[in-house]
Amino acid sequence: MNLYRSARAVAGASGDDMIDWESAADAAKAVTDPGSLDLEPGEREAYARDVRDAREGIREVSGAAFDVPDTIEVQNRHHWIDANIATFERVMGTLQHQLPDGAFPGVARTINTGTMTVLLAFLGRNVLGQYDPLLLAETPEDDHALYFVRPNILSAAESLEVDPERFRRWIAFHEVTHAAEFGAAPWLSDHLEARMEEGISTLSEGSFDRDAFRELDATMTVVEGYAELLMDHAFDGEYADLRRKLDARRQGRGPLQQLLRRLLGLGLKERQYQRGKQFFETVVERRDLETAGLVWEGPDALPTQDELDAPGLWLERVDP
């Protein structure tokens, strides 16, 4: 790691945008060990096999017609930062376009760039796998992508004292469940993008669109909860110990890491997992897995915030 090079990159932030994205990426990589991509013989094929097996298993239990992304990458940490800086820039660019010219003078730009550096560096050292629907992509050929951050997977497996191949396979199944959701619901990307743009637009005007953010939270709760449901039914092995150990690892982080997780909204994501999983478990208990899949019939079929806490209300509305 090179703290001096990172600080120099942040201090040299320039341009007209709220964040100097190139400087943020350079600074984040300067303080992040990229990790090794020296794959063992057959390891790349093992990643591909895990993804194929996950696709077939999830297709079978969900009945959803979907395919995995064309882009499947085994990355190091620097690759992940480079892949995601464009995503952050697209999302934040929505806010940038709502603001008057000159809204971000040099000092503010430097602070924003430093904040983005911390975010990218922290996530780059912790993300295991990622299904990226490439929201707000401008060109049709930008489809969706699936990333595996090999150094983080190996490091986490070692610290959790679990078999790295089984752990890698579990990560593959989880990320492919998200591909299944977006494949089963072609409208989902547009729905998420619209809610994001609505919320960001009002923030730029100095107000807060509570309804837009509540709807975005409800949708993401469904996305995370349905993924957990499919994992329970599709993964071809025992994984309760993996989840238990990973949850314990998250809870056992130091005060600074816990603070960063809260600031980055990772605690919210875990709440979405738990709340969404409980919703779908209740739906399947009262009906079946096929009924749970009705959430992807269209935006109107998504449960509201109230229905997430009372699945019976949702069932009465969509499958009386």
Score class of each variant (00 low, 15 high):
residue 169 R to G: 01
residue 155 S to L: 04
residue 103 A to R: 08
residue 218 A to I: 01
residue 43 E to Y: 05
residue 288 D to W: 03
residue 163 D to F: 10
residue 35 G to T: 12
residue 69 P to G: 12
residue 82 D to H: 09
residue 105 P to N: 05
residue 155 S to P: 00
residue 47 Y to N: 06
residue 302 L to V: 03
residue 262 R to H: 10
residue 232 D to S: 12
residue 198 E to N: 15
residue 148 F to T: 08
residue 146 L to E: 01
residue 113 T to D: 03
residue 7 A to Y: 13
residue 121 A to L: 02
residue 279 F to V: 04
residue 267 G to P: 05
residue 124 G to C: 08
residue 292 A to Q: 00
residue 43 E to V: 04
residue 81 I to E: 02
residue 211 D to C: 11
residue 8 R to C: 06
residue 297 E to Q: 14
residue 49 R to Y: 09
residue 33 D to N: 11
residue 288 D to Y: 01
residue 192 L to A: 05
residue 134 L to R: 15
residue 216 L to G: 09
residue 63 G to M: 09
residue 185 A to P: 08
residue 75 Q to L: 15
residue 52 R to Y: 10
residue 130 Q to E: 14
residue 280 F to W: 07
residue 260 L to D: 03
residue 52 R to E: 13
residue 297 E to W: 05
residue 269 K to I: 15
residue 319 D to F: 14
residue 27 A to F: 00
residue 107 V to H: 11
residue 112 N to M: 00
residue 311 P to M: 02
residue 55 R to D: 05
residue 212 A to Y: 04
residue 291 T to D: 05
residue 108 A to L: 15
residue 30 A to M: 13
residue 233 H to F: 11
residue 139 T to A: 14
residue 6 S to T: 03
residue 317 R to C: 02
residue 97 H to S: 15
residue 97 H to Y: 11
residue 165 E to H: 13
residue 271 R to M: 11
residue 132 D to S: 08
residue 223 V to H: 03
residue 198 E to Y: 12
residue 142 D to Q: 11
residue 215 E to P: 09
residue 50 D to R: 03
residue 65 A to Q: 14
residue 115 T to D: 10
residue 68 V to P: 00
residue 171 I to G: 00
residue 225 G to I: 07
residue 16 D to E: 13
residue 185 A to Y: 05
residue 135 L to P: 03
residue 136 L to P: 02
residue 44 R to A: 15
residue 237 G to F: 06
residue 224 E to W: 00
residue 150 R to Q: 15
residue 210 R to Q: 12
residue 307 E to F: 13
residue 201 S to L: 01
residue 71 T to E: 13
residue 18 M to G: 09
residue 237 G to I: 06
residue 228 E to Q: 15
residue 19 I to N: 05
residue 33 D to T: 12
residue 18 M to D: 05
residue 86 A to D: 11
residue 21 W to M: 06
residue 157 A to E: 01
residue 62 S to A: 11
residue 134 L to F: 11
residue 223 V to Q: 04
residue 301 A to T: 14
residue 73 E to D: 14
residue 183 G to I: 02
residue 95 L to V: 12
residue 84 N to Y: 09
residue 26 D to G: 05
residue 256 L to N: 08
residue 100 P to N: 04
residue 213 F to V: 07
